[in-house]
Design a protein around this nucleic acid. Structure first.
Lengths: 106, 106
DNA sequence: AAGTAATACTTCGTGATACGATGTATTACA
DNA sequence: TGTAATACATCGTATCACGAAGTATTACTT
């Protein structure tokens, strides 16, 4: 998929991935794989960004002798998903414009 | 609207705006305004990028004593719109994932 | 006649971002 | 013994949207 189209979707996808259950980096990548592929460097960049924006909190848990960083969504993170759902209507309007122009002469 | 969400849509919108009739910068901005707002600096950056990518061609026409640069879509530009329409299904899948996760506990 | 809005294109600088490359470290399995 | 899987971190880079500022003409308003 076009890189540019992914932008704007990535943050929300990550938030959606941790919304119902706290999760950690490696699992998030695997969970999202069927929908959107993202590399580790991309994911950790996003997680750090979302943490700075207070959309999630982090807590470290020991698991099988190694550390895992679990990410927990905050109220602001939930609001971010809501905002996205509202913005979706604008996206749809734009999509319809493109299709309309495209089919005008078919 | 979220800046990131606009990315990926911008290029295609501009191409859609010139698809049925050659147009020029100032008019493109006005035509797109109801759907997506973009500044002059943004638009001209996009037009230059699309020209470099051979998705459109430029020809200058004198109009009322001043020069106007008309943009004409190419086959590749038309293909770009087609590609976008295909990618739209992936976007929809992602959208549905976000909504599904979001409504799981409602 | 003077001033302002609209038309029309250009360039510069900047912050945000996705991602490849690379590194570290442990566990599981062949 | 080796390799894949698990798990997180950092650096550098190219791309990009956009504000700011500039240039120049036409059209209107006062």
């Amino acid at each position: 998929m076009d890189i540019q189209l992914k932008r704007g979707l990535l943050d929300v996808c990550v938030l959606a991935a941790i919304k119902n259950e706290d999760s950690y980096g490696y699992k998030i990548i695997k969970d999202l794989k069927p929908y959107i592929e993202l590399s580790q460097s991309t994911l950790y960049t996003i997680l750090k960004r979302l943490e700075t924006a207070h959309m999630l909190t982090v807590h470290t848990v020991e698991h099988d002798g190694r550390l895992r960083k679990y990410y927990h969504i905050t109220e602001e993170g939930i609001k971010r998903i809501d905002d996205f759902k509202n913005e979706w209507n604008e996206i749809l309007t734009i999509y319809r414009f493109v299709v309309k122009e495209d089919e005008e002469d078919v």
